[in-house]
Amino acid sequence: MSPLKIKKGTSRHSAYDLRDPHSDVIESHTLAVVVDNEAGVLARVIGLFSGRGYNIDSLTVAEIDHTGHRSRITIVTRGTPAVIEQIKAQLGRIVPVHEVHDLTVEGPSVERELALFKVAGTGDKRVEALRLADIFRANVVDSTLGSFVFEITGTPEKIDAFAELMRPLGLAEVARTGVAALGRGIVEG
């Protein structure tokens, strides 16, 4: 019987946390933070990142409970496992923070992003842009004689791939919402 060929820390879907907390490998993590919906809370959370030199790759915020005045902040950030643990611990100490979840390590999750792409072009480039948009299931939400605005929803990787294909066809502008994410399965407790 041959040994399993599992590289340490390669699968975020593993039943075991195989990552070395002392590793210097940079990882991307999606954090979901539930906070009180009051003035200054977002600034305090963002201040934690900027004050310590941590980068934010994506940030989305919306109220999730109107009666309880709670909002959910979804942050995609990068760092070593030790830095990610430090970020989570420091977020948990901020007073209006109720919950901090690292969706990357808590199990399977669903991540989606919405983007708008303005693609300017005529002739064959215009036809090719429409063909690729159909393949990616992007919707045309505005059209003029010289440009299209496409709306696309999907994983950040899908959005990036669509952008790369549109670039040579006349990509003029991009607007992205940032990642919205939820853990899969039943919530216990």
Rank of each mutant, 00 (worst) to 15 (best):
N55D: 15
V83R: 09
T60K: 04
H101Y: 08
D160A: 15
R70H: 12
G92C: 03
D65T: 07
E113W: 03
H98L: 14
L182E: 13
K158S: 06
Y16P: 00
R184C: 11
S71G: 04
A120H: 00
E85D: 15
K158T: 13
K88S: 10
Y16S: 08
S14T: 10
A180P: 01
D134G: 15
L91F: 09
G79A: 07
R12A: 03
S143G: 01
G121L: 04
I159K: 00
Q90I: 03
E164N: 13
R176A: 01
I6M: 12
V149K: 00
V95Q: 09
P168Q: 11
R137P: 06
T153C: 06
D17V: 10
E151N: 07
A175P: 03
I73T: 06
V34R: 01
F150P: 07
L171C: 12
A181G: 05
R167V: 02
P96R: 07
F150T: 09
K118D: 01
R93E: 10
L114A: 03
I94T: 07
L59Q: 03
D24W: 08
P96I: 12
I46A: 15
E128R: 14
D24V: 10
T153F: 00
L114F: 02
L165S: 12
D36G: 07
S23N: 02
E27H: 09
D17P: 03
A32N: 11
A32T: 09
G183P: 01
L91N: 09
T122K: 13
E27I: 11
V127N: 09
V34W: 00
R184L: 10
A138V: 11
H101Q: 12
I56A: 06
L59G: 04
H66I: 06
E157D: 13
T67H: 11
I6L: 15
G107H: 04
V76T: 06
A62P: 00
I56E: 05
S71M: 03
I46E: 05
I56D: 03
R131L: 07
E106F: 13
E157Q: 12
V127T: 14
L42M: 12
A133T: 11
S28K: 14
R112I: 10
A89E: 13
D102Y: 04
H69E: 13
R126M: 05
H29A: 13
A161R: 11
V140I: 14
G47K: 01
I6D: 14
P168F: 13
F162Q: 02
V97A: 07
D134M: 07
S2A: 12
F162H: 02
E99S: 13
L132Y: 05
V119S: 02
D24A: 12
A39D: 11
R78G: 11
S109T: 02
D160N: 05
T60V: 10
A181S: 15
V149W: 00
L59H: 02
E188S: 11
I46W: 02
H101A: 13
G51E: 00
P81C: 06
L4Q: 15
S109W: 02
A115K: 04
S50Q: 02
G170A: 09
T80V: 07
E128G: 04
